[in-house]
Design a protein around this nucleic acid. Sequence first.
DNA 1: TTGTAATTTTGATATACATCTAATTAGATG
DNA 2: CATCTAATTAGATGTATATCAAAATTACAA
Lengths: 185, 185
Amino acid sequence: MASVEFSKILAFFKALSDESRLKIVGALASNERSVEELATLLELRAPTVSHHLAKLKEVGLVEMRSEGTTHIYHLVMSEMRALTKRVLTLDSIETFTEDVVPDAWERKILGDFFEGQRLKEIPASRKKREVVLRWLVERFQFDKRYTEKEVSAIIAKHHPDFATLRRELICAKLLARESGVYWRP
Amino acid sequence: MASVEFSKILAFFKALSDESRLKIVGALASNERSVEELATLLELRAPTVSHHLAKLKEVGLVEMRSEGTTHIYHLVMSEMRALTKRVLTLDSIETFTEDVVPDAWERKILGDFFEGQRLKEIPASRKKREVVLRWLVERFQFDKRYTEKEVSAIIAKHHPDFATLRRELICAKLLARESGVYWRP
DNA sequence: TTGTAATTTTGATATACATCTAATTAGATG
DNA sequence: CATCTAATTAGATGTATATCAAAATTACAA
């Protein structure tokens, strides 16, 4: 489920993603104005302007005051500032996908390339290969030292080409090696 | 004709006014990602994601790097910041309507209520009445003093109810009065 | 060169929505 | 109360566009 933050920001962008509404905001920036006045300025019919103002009001960007039968709208700059500021921070942007399972991609790759414990094929693309390598390196303990034979044996349980995979693990810095001894850094 | 500033900002809002694109931006906020990866994360087909990325690239919010046949996209935060900052300043917001004749409204009111030099009727709504009064006060010179008779005579050339209009001019502070003498402040 | 995987382009479809006219509501005026 | 004006709501229509499947493209590998 999308966060309230997300829908608020999405609504904000939707509100300002229309030429007429953006012009209305521009017109209100210098002055409060009635519906009829805005309609004349933008060369639109009153119902159209009314419809746009309703959308802007929904997200809190404008407010209305009655004077007789005429409704006078004005911009709420504080809301404008509050919303744009939120978009500026990386932290809040990341929440845009918080309803998404963050490792869906990795799990899909593992599902595609493994048949149980057995690696069907070494992925050609770097990004996919890295996912497989990160899974492989989990078969090793952190505080233990391995001989080359041991490393090869562990890898061989998942794929016959242990030499290539061993090299790739080193290359990706997932395993470290010095004078024939391997460990997990 | 709309300013380049205006269309740039409109394009920016259009780019971010879609749920999927906003989520893409969110996903790219923490990491660069391939098309396939984004498609898995958002549960969309690759062509759809490709289409969205093209739109984001058009406004400079993302950039792309090739790695083999996979295209890896990343967010351009500087562009994000530059665009949101521009929206924050009142000055630039006002330019959203710079292609609009600023006094279109006033001219329409004057056209509606005047028959040549003759005021057909005194507008009931305050906003419209003020437009008419501002036109009327232009019939008076700045550095001259008028008797009440003179004021009434000038107004009467445009409308019979000079008393009401004279009072309204004072009330709107467009004319000043002291001990029977009138002038334009 | 032939094949394969990732992406993009094309074409089709369905939905969202901006705009208009006509009808309705709400205040103000005579 | 009847009327007028400004605004909103309802209903209709056309355009924009998000999405997908299928075809075309691109870059790499065998």
